[in-house]
Amino acid sequence: MAITDSTANRYTALDPDVRLMLRVRDDDAQAFEELVRRYQQRLIGVLEHLVRGKDMAEDLAQEVFLRVFRARKNYKPGAKFSTWLFTIANNVASNALRNRARRKEVDVSTVMGPQREGNPLDEMLAAASGLMPARQLDKLERAEIVQLAVEALNDRQRMALLLAKFEGLSYEEIAQVMQLSPQAVKSLLSRARRNLKDLLRPYMEEGSSPDDPGAA
């Protein structure tokens, strides 16, 4: 869809990162470096949870920034800069995950690698059952359990969840990033939240109200 001048003007006025990107369009190298600095942590954070691996996440983040740079001459702001950036990141990550699935690579370095047989949720529950949910978990254990639960989600649920939780994107923005309808994002996020809830229920902290029948 073509971006109108009024839309472009609106985002230019609202979003300082859009203005930075417009300077990148005019071959301002410092503006590009500033954008990298501003977004590297957030981008790698999302990509790392998405592709499970820091090195790969950094490689993909560089690919994203390279695409941003290559696209600079045709850049016209039709959304917040972060939405545009994460749309590129989603495409890059989807391609990488697809290629990895095609090559059938098995990551043996992780405890629960990405290539699992059967239902990942069932396997997650089975794995989690050995971690003694009744006792108090330390910080590292909790982090590991939450990470395993997030990894047990499918790629699309994980992406939507990460964008909503850590990027604070609205359903409309997530829909734009993932090329879905807002209603599809709503369903995707509710399924992701239910799956997470089922996985993490045994580890939820004490303190729920006594009349709470679902509490552990």
Binding site: E33, V36, R37, Q40, Q41, I44, G45, E48, H49, K54, A57, E58, A61, K139, R142, A143, V146, Q147, V150, L161, K165, R193, L196, K197, L200, R201, Y203, M204, E205, S208, S209, D212, G214, A215
Partner: peptide
């Protein structure tokens, strides 16, 4: 409440760090 608590648990996800010379 369960949904809200699940959402809060995501704050425990390990924070990723960026390599020193990434920029």
């Amino acid at each position: 409440r369960e949904l809200a608590r699940t959402w809060e648990m995501l704050d425990h996800l390990p924070q990723s760090s960026v390599s020193e010379h990434f920029t």
